[in-house]
């Protein structure tokens, strides 16, 4: 190690130590006002956060209440007189709604698997198409690259309603309307994951790739052995965001799926009437489980993905 580097290192370390000391000093000598501010901030944020989480609590507690209890609490919604009531915990918790849903309603399984199929196939298809495309944009310089990338960004930003008719026309020609492919194929061609994954690929230094080329690695091998492992964060972000999006898809199945047996959960749930509230609560909770699972496992990736979509090119 040359002298200059060594000197730099020592100075940096000293600086860091000084920073730490300053922070410690500040923490110890915080005024009463600051502490109060901190507490107040926590309380306010906590209250807002609880408001955000309250709907989930309502769903879970409702799904455990007996039919009679729910009837009593929710009666006001149907009659329009008096007010709704609620209990923090059910009087007599019961799993009967879940049992009915899982053991006596084969329809629910069909719908659940429809949703699973649409979400998993869409995200899988997206990866197959988007990861190589993102690699192409990030690593190679080719004619019309800038133009094509702008096209991808524009397509990413267009809402479904604008492209609905065009998708319908082509799906109709391909005789795919009223099959799951009508939802999956256009979703797989979405350009949003290309944009997300592009970010993590473009962080790879070109010198590394050139070194691999000089050592005789082919382009495909470089993509597989260097690109994929280094961009795994970005790819996982795209998976998490994609799953959350395609699990609660409404517009596309509404437009392209006519037969009820093909419907995903997101269209089936609202069909349940308020008279079967317990059933509806339980179905909502089950609908919530897969995305909640993905959310808690992948929250880090989710945050990174969102933050990455905010950075400009």
């Amino acid at each position: 190690m040359d002298r200059y580097k060594l000197k730099n290192r020592i100075v940096n370390a000293a600086g860091r130590r000084a920073d730490k000391a300053v922070r410690k000093f500040r923490r110890r000598n915080r005024g009463l006002g600051q502490v109060l501010g901190q507490v107040l901030r926590c309380l306010l944020l906590g209250a807002a956060g609880l408001l955000f989480a309250a709907p989930v609590f309502l769903l879970v507690s409702g799904s455990l209440m007996s039919r009679w209890e729910l009837g009593e609490y929710l009666g006001a919604l149907e009659s329009g007189e008096g007010f709704i009531r609620w209990a923090w915990f059910p009087m007599y918790p019961t799993f009967s709604h879940y049992a009915r849903l899982l053991f006596e309603t084969p329809q629910f399984f069909t719908v659940f698997w429809n949703s699973m199929k649409i979400a998993v196939c869409s995200v899988g298809g997206q990866l197959l198409l988007a990861v190589p495309a993102a690699w192409a944009f990030a690593v190679y310089r080719f004619p019309m690259r800038k133009l094509l990338f702008t096209l991808y960004v524009v397509l990413m930003l267009l809402p479904f309603q604008v492209t609905m008719l065009s998708s319908y026309l082509v799906l109709n020609d391909l005789k795919l309307v009223n099959t799951h492919w009508a939802v999956i194929l256009p979703a797989a061609c979405s350009t949003y994951p290309v944009f997300l994954i592009y970010r993590s690929f473009s962080g790879i230094p070109g010198a590394l790739l050139d070194a691999a080329r000089i050592d005789g690695a082919g382009e495909w091998r470089i993509f597989r052995k260097i690109g994929l492992p280094l961009a795994s964060n970005g790819i996982l972000s795209a998976v998490v965001l994609g799953f959350l999006e395609y699990w609660s898809l409404i517009e596309q199945p509404l437009a392209f799926l006519k037969d009820q047996p093909l419907w995903p959960l997101s269209l089936y749930l609202p069909e349940i009437s308020l008279g079967q509230a317990g059933y509806s609560f339980a179905a909502s909770v089950i609908t919530l489980i897969p995305p909640a699972f993905v959310f808690f496992i992948g929250q880090d990736y989710l945050e990174k993905g969102i933050a990455a979509s905010g950075l400009k090119e």
């Binding site: 709907p55 309502l58 769903l59 009659s79 329009g80 959960l265 609908t287 909640a292």
Partner: peptide, 26 residues
């Protein structure tokens, strides 16, 4: 807490909105 609503499917939340915003609601 703030991010979690992203994971809640619209279909699951409809029932809650009805409970909150209808005439006898919360």
């Amino acid at each position: 807490l703030f991010l979690f609503p992203m994971a809640v499917p619209a279909a699951a939340i409809v029932l809650v909105w009805k409970m909150v915003f209808s005439s006898g609601g919360f």
